[in-house]
Structure formats: structure tokens, C-alpha cells
Design a protein around this nucleic acid. Structure first.
Lengths: 226, 226
DNA sequence: ATCAATATTGAACATAATTCATTATTATTA
DNA sequence: TAATAATAATGAATTATGTTCAATATTGAT
């Protein structure tokens, strides 16, 4: 999906621009996004100024509008790259793990680990983009939602195996998992990331697993104890 | 705390203004806040303009700056009244309920009920204020945090009775409860409040109670089954 | 090397928050 | 009640910043 889209863009660029200009254009776009991440995460959307971003990127104000429709479009373009990283890393970390509860444990750990290591991006995503009504209507938002698709898949797998309860709507179970994780990360970022967000990851997994199991009797499937 | 502060303000006003002017000043302040709620919740902080708020309140732009330091100060002043309402209503609804799990059920229900009935305010609180770094440093934010103090109290009570697990940090348990509730409300608001947020309140309570109980054996305390 | 196509620039423009000198209103005093 | 003082409200002027666009610079094709 994303790959084919990029190919289209590349084809278009190759036809109209030379190959060097194409690379330059892509690189400049990335320069702008990098500058935007730095300024936006330090000051927030509202207080960050286009002038400052342009200065950081080493270009004139007007040039930004060659690459992005407006300040908001630039802001909304930030998560694409990081979402790809998160998504592929989750897949990698889940690779080879058997047992849905072990997968839950790993997902919980990686989610917290990722934001521990990307607090600036976390601020943009968790405190601004994730709750922005316009952003929720963009393609990037759909793409972002796909990045936590694995939670859904794991729960479904567990329900099929009979180790995760089916008396509760799967949407509610997903709200439970993402709710506690996003809440923890948001509060942590609002407290200026002063403490170790990863410290209690095992406790988080434990209560989530108890909630997901529910009244269902242990099926003796591939489940590891803490 | 809040009461004594208001008294100070009143005393100050009574000394410097006549009693009529005092009431007028308070009323006008409330007019502005009411106009601000309407405009901010429709357009969001960024897109709402002071002119529009002033117009709605039937006053000149400059007058707003007699009552509030700036646009942000006005925005941050909104939650005070509603927080009082939420807090007192929670207390009322919990009145007379015995058994910590019954209290959890009632809290979950009232939380969802409150935002179902206050979606405009919900947008301001959940999608803007709650994740605003400057707001997190205000007194109003501390006041707001106190409004969910009951969750902490209920969990503590349950732990003392031995019906809520003690192998998990109480902070994590609170993240669990507020996490799923705030997540549900936020997603619902981003979806333009199209479905009934209250529909699954029993399922939410059920998984939360399973998570809070954990491995702890039923103590036979005042606990009702679903 | 020349010309066409494209990219960059930054001053000018538009919008909106904030200020402040002026005007209107309200309270006090004789 | 009239005169005066104190306070509140006003809205035009100021300031700040996102956005546009005509002019300039750069790049690619012949």
C-alpha cells in the first residue's frame, strides 16, 4: 500500500525532474520534517513558528510551502516515518514468540520501550496528534491505527485458542490494552519523563492478562506463567 | 482550598467595588466563560478567535482582557465549574453503595454517563486540556486530578479489605481504570460521538474488576456478582 | 551555450492576539 | 442631587505570525 504509493511518486518525479533533483527534493523534504520534529516537540504546534523551522532547516520561509500545504500539513506529515519504524520493530520483536500472553507481554514492553527512547516524538504523537480532530481524518491517522493492529490480532488469536474471554467485545479489550499504555505514556510525558516508564512493565502485563483471561478457565494452551 | 480562595477574591471585591458591581463583574466573567465554552468546543483552541468569543458574549474584544490574562488563561479557566459538578455528582452517586466492586461499577457508569451528556466539554477536556503541557502546570489541573481521587480511594479500600490485589502498584491500577475510560471517551469524541458510549459499561466494569481482583482469592466481602 | 522548466527567496499581505489612550459607567461625598 | 473620583468598557492601533507571489536563482535538455 505505502510502497506502491511511493513508487508512483517516484515515477512522477523521475519523469519531470532529473534524478539528482529528485534526490535533492526528497532530501530537502526530510530536512524540513527533521527541523519540524525538533521545533514542534520543543514548543508544541501552537508556539512553534514557521520562521524558526525554516531557519533550522536552513531555507527561506516560502520554501516550506513548496513541500507542504500549510503548517498543519507539515505537522501531520511527521508521524509517517516513525510509524513505520514502530510497526516493523513490533513485528520483529514478536517474531518467534509463541503464546498469546507472551506476545502481550512483549507488546507491552516494546510499546513502553519505544516511547522511553522517543520522548520528543511521543510528545507530538500522544499529546498533540493523537487527540487532534483534523488529524483523525487524515490518511496518516489510518496508517497509525494499523500500527497497533497487532494488539487486535493477538486478542483474536487468543479468543480462537480459548485463552482470552469472548464475553467482552473485542473493541473493549483493545481499549483496555491501548488505554493503559497510552495513559501511562501521556502522564509520563506531562511529568517531563522524570521517572522510568519501563519500570513496571511486568505489572502492567500481569493485570492486562488477568483482565483478558477473565472467567475463562485456563485452556492449557501455550501460556507461560510470570 | 477552593472555597477560601473564592472568599479572598470576594473580600477583595467587596472592599474595592460596590456590592452590585461585584455581582455584575462575576456575572460578566461567567458570560465570557460560557461564550468561550461554546466557541472553543466548536472550533478548538487554535481556530477559535477572541473576536468571536467577545461577539458571542456581547462585549468588546478588550474587555476579555480585563477578566483574563490572555486567550490561554481564558481557555484554562473553563474546567473549574464542570469539575465541581463532576466531583459532587460522583460523590452523590457513590453515596450509600457498599462493596468496592459495586463502587467501581458505579464510577465507570457515571464517568461514561457524564461525558455522554457533556460532549462539548468532553472535547475541550479530553482532546485539548488534558494533554496540554502548560495546563498540566496550573492549579486547575491539580483540582481536576482531585476529581478522580475517588478511584484511588476505592482501590485503597479494596486493598485493605483484601479484595483488590496488592501485588501491583496502586498507580498502575489507577492507570488501568482511568486509561480505559479516557481512551474510550477520547476515541468516541474523535468519531464525532456517533455511537452510544454507555452501551458497554458493564463489560468495562467486568474486565476492570477481573484485573483488580487478580490472583487474590475472593474474601467474601460485600461484593456483588454481575 | 542557450533556453525552458523548476525551485527558492523574502518582502508584502492577511489574520488575529494583545495593548492602551479614550470614553462611559458606577460609587462616593458634600 | 450635583460634583468628583474610581473603575470598567471600548475599539483603533500595535504586534506577531502564517501564507502568498512576483522576482531571482538554479537546474536540465538540446
Amino acid at each position: 500500500m505505502q510502497g506502491s504509493k511511493r513508487n508512483c511518486v517516484n515515477l512522477f518525479l523521475r519523469k519531470t525532474l532529473g534524478i539528482q533533483a529528485m534526490y535533492k527534493k526528497v532530501a530537502r523534504r526530510e530536512d524540513i520534517i527533521q527541523a519540524a520534529i525538533e521545533i514542534f516537540s520543543k514548543k508544541g504546534f501552537q508556539s512553534a513558528s514557521i520562521s524558526e523551522i525554516a531557519k533550522r532547516a536552513g531555507i527561506a520561509n516560502g520554501t516550506i510551502y513548496q513541500y507542504f500545504r500549510n503548517k498543519e500539513d507539515l505537522f501531520f506529515s511527521i508521524p509517517v516515518e516513525k510509524t513505520n519504524e514502530f510497526r516493523s520493530q513490533v513485528a520483529l520483536h514478536l517474531e518467534g514468540i509463541t503464546g498469546v500472553f507472551n506476545k502481550i507481554r512483549k507488546f507491552v514492553w516494546y510499546f513502553l520501550y519505544f516511547f522511553k527512547n522517543n520522548p520528543e516524538y511521543g510528545r507530538l504523537l500522544m499529546l498533540e496528534l493523537r487527540v487532534n480532530r483534523s488529524f483523525a481524518k487524515t490518511e496518516t491517522y489510518d496508517f497509525l491505527k494499523q500500527s497497533v493492529r497487532s494488539v487486535w490480532d493477538i486478542i483474536e488469536e487468543g479468543q480462537k485458542e480459548g485463552v482470552i474471554r469472548t464475553d467482552v467485545d473485542i473493541y473493549i479489550l483493545r481499549h483496555l490494552v491501548l488505554g493503559i499504555l497510552e495513559h501511562m505514556v501521556s502522564r509520563w510525558l506531562l511529568k517531563d519523563a522524570q521517572y522510568d516508564i519501563l519500570e513496571h512493565h511486568q505489572q502492567v502485563s500481569r493485570i492486562l492478562i488477568d483482565a483478558l483471561r477473565g472467567g475463562v478457565a485456563d485452556s492449557g494452551g501455550p501460556v507461560a506463567k510470570d
